[in-house]
Write a protein that binds this DNA or RNA. Structure first.
Ligand SMILES: [Zn+2]
Ligand SMILES: [Zn+2]
Ligand SMILES: [Zn+2]
Ligand SMILES: [Zn+2]
Lengths: 134, 134
DNA sequence: GCCTTGCTGATAATGATTGTCAAAACCATT
DNA sequence: AATGGTTTTGACAATCATTATCAGCAAGGC
């Protein structure tokens, strides 16, 4: 049976407190900075559990790191992510869903899954970059 | 100036000989099995170069490993990949291109890039899986 | 409160990738 | 073809994220 521990709650809470996608390491650091003595391995385990149950979304950063986020819905959706500050916008794209399904079927593929993420610079970071370049 | 070495050619050749996406480690093993004494670090460097120049496509496997492939075109495109045997189909999706651009612009994002990959089981692997399950 | 058993955390282990740097290979020039 | 400045290579160490271990702790049913 699955038990309830304060550690699991702490990780869930830390995820909720973060707006963008964060790594397990970053979340562990954040928890430590608030005085929590939670272990790193436990953070990894909790995040993996949350991802399995659908309570957290996960994706691979372009650098190959696993990032997690507590999204507002557990329905299938995608993300628009600022590569500078991590600001994340949840996006739905029925057109992309059907396209992915169709392209797989047309090529004889089954059990299709897809990875669709958009990375860019948010308006604030764009302005900041322009200012510092001046 | 960039020099031409047999190592670079060997990596390019090994990539061409492989139909699907392969990891640097796998490519190094493949080269070794043919008797090539090329070093692992060199394979990593060559692949990084090929990716920068656009001669190779790269993506992150769902497990976070960097995979490379020599595609038939250096134009922007995406991939449908068999997660069992690695069979890869190059796919174009103008609809997805415009969608990605639009969704970024509508949210004030600039310098947008996107990651779009479809993973599944190819027809052959699907049949094989069905047979072994019987 | 007791007991069973899942959970935690310090630490070691793993595995991919990158850094180091002396030796070897390129290549324009002589 | 030999020379020399520069780049590239490769063996190895170093990093870094993630996972495995495993003894001790604690959640929850009794
Ligand atoms: Zn931003
Ligand atoms: Zn989708
Ligand atoms: Zn296949
Ligand atoms: Zn595209």
């Amino acid at each position: 049976m699955k038990r309830n521990t304060w550690q699991r709650e702490a990780v869930r809470g830390a995820l909720d407190a973060n707006d963008g996608f964060v790594s397990a390491q970053a979340l562990h650091s954040a928890l430590h900075s608030t005085g929590s003595p939670i272990g790193l391995a436990t953070v990894y385990r909790a995040l993996a559990d949350l991802a399995v149950t659908g309570d957290a979304d996960s994706l691979q950063s372009p650098e190959g790191e696993s990032l997690y986020r507590a999204c507002s819905t557990n329905d299938h959706h995608h993300h628009l992510i600022c590569r500078n500050c991590g600001l994340t916008v949840e996006i739905e794209a029925d057109a992309v869903e059907t396209w992915a399904k169709d392209v797989a079927a047309q090529n004889g593929f089954t059990q299709a899954a897809h990875v669709v993420d958009v990375f860019g610079l948010c308006a604030a970071c764009t302005a900041q970059a322009a200012a510092s370049a001046r």
